[in-house]
Amino acid sequence: MERIQWQLARVKSIVQETPRVKTFTLTLPNWIPHLPGQHYDLRLTAEDGYQAQRSYSIASPPEQTGEIDLTVELIDDGEVSAYLHEGVAPGDQLEVRGPIGGYFVWQDAMKHVPLLLVAGGSGVVPLMAMLRHRAKIGATNPTRLLFSVRSAEEAIYRDELEEMARHDAQFDLLLTFTRDVPVDWAGYHRRIDRLMLTEVLHRFETQPHCFICGPTLLVEQVANTLAELGLSADTIRTERFGPTGT
């Protein structure tokens, strides 16, 4: 593990993913290869010295060298996310440190084990890095993403995920909409619950590794339910984002 230090990244580009979500591509003077699932800490400093620090997962795979993508959801009255959405433009500098974390990561050594990814809202970000890297290395382990979002327009990376599912017979995308559903929607239309998780688990022939990420209460509920359904604790990895959307 290399030593991490605060460094000044430059905003290379900004992409609007959904009405409330933007991806910031940052160029780093001291880029360190990351593991999919890791995050960076970002720190804002006001003129009077006041600082606010938050964590943001890396969305890009380590194959994208020299830079990182951070995908940030705008939280109403959120201190840092509102500043990033409203006050940052390409060319600006942002203070970050990373990559951080060795627990919530998908390692190449796991590429032969089935994989269950469960996300709520922006919790999909670190899982996206895993999926992008998995595609890059050509892994063929059965993989499913159960992704809970409020409505179709709020599903981050939806086009890329559907494209991935079309091209990779071993990857399934299972969306569930908790509020508004598209007219012709035949899939899930409720919060993730025990029945849904049972159905998803039934699609696996052998027990998968699980990564669960998103709003704290969703993460805890899904992890508890998966444990009740018989998955052993050491195959379930969780990361709580706090009070984010969904």
Binding site: D41, S55, G98, Y103, T216, R240, F241
Partner: peptide
């Protein structure tokens, strides 16, 4: 608001 050990790893 509850987070976990990942959030303080940095």
């Amino acid at each position: 608001l509850r987070l976990d050990g990942n959030a303080v790893a940095g």
